[in-house]
Design a protein around this nucleic acid. Structure first.
Lengths: 145, 145
DNA sequence: CTCAATTAAATTGCTTTCAATTAAATTTAT
DNA sequence: ATAAATTTAATTGAAAGCAATTTAATTGAG
């Protein structure tokens, strides 16, 4: 009885194109992010900050699927650039609250120009992009399974 | 005139769920890959080796969307585990040919058990998985744009 | 109340990833 | 035939990313 190795082929795996695609698209952000002095990880942290203004490291981690091991150095770097503040919560000293500075707010202006530039070099129609979006969030939503 | 910041929201970006999804699924591989002593990157290199037997670093990089900066240490590590060989091409000394060893071939057996285990914890129907697959390769295929 | 368990973030150690540079071999143009 | 340009890997340096551990604060059980 012959064993079936088909699933072991790169082209039969869903994980691989996901992984490759993710890196290729993130790469497209680099030249634009360079202009505003952010890395991709710093950029997605700032995206949360532009929406929420104040957020604990834990909440940030849940939103971005990142842990404190990744976030701590990123947040320290954003703090040193003057874009966010890091303050311990007075109610619970374990909690670190990340806040946005005026300078951080101001950066939103320039950052807003990036997404349209990326969108136009991803070769999907709006419908396809919508479908992809839903499928990705379906996977993300089902972490427990 | 109010500027439109909607595209700056995390939930309106395609890149973010792609990035998060990729990392979450790769994470699911870890416990299984640990059992056969491979990292995810080593695993996808081995997937190419199981199919091709002999491949240059350049070809490997094109297939996996990785450069020599990433591949060189991974290949050295696989070589030290005895799973692949690294030999300079005699026709062109610049080219490094990666070959698979018997031990590398033998690992395929255990590796074949991994994909089914992953598949069943990704909450997509076969049709959805197919759609996702096509969309991802549509993006990957359009690198030039 | 006190000690154990839990929680949040930071730290450590390791692999990955990538941009940029370097080194060596090959190809091309003159 | 030789010099310039190109190609292939390797190297270097920096940021991510993650598992595992540690530290400090808080909560809970007896």
């Amino acid at each position: 009885m012959e064993k079936n190795y088909d699933m072991l082929k790169l082209e039969n795996q869903l994980c691989f194109p996901l992984y490759a695609c993710s890196r290729e698209i993130v790469k497209k952000y680099h030249p634009h992010l360079d202009e505003i002095g952010l890395t991709y990880t710093q950029y997605i942290v700032m995206m949360v900050m532009w929406e929420k203004k104040h957020v604990s490291v834990k909440e940030l981690g849940e939103k971005l699927y990142l842990d404190s091991g990744t976030l701590t150095p990123v947040l320290k770097s954003l703090e040193s650039k003057g874009l966010v503040t890091r303050t311990r919560s007075s109610e619970d000293e374990r909690v670190l609250i990340v806040g946005i500075t005026d300078e951080g707010e101001a950066l939103k202006e320039q950052a807003a120009e990036i997404p349209p530039k990326i969108a136009c070099c991803v070769a999907l129609s709006p419908e396809e992009a919508g479908t992809l979006y839903k499928l990705l969030y379906k996977i993300l939503g089902n972490e427990s399974a």
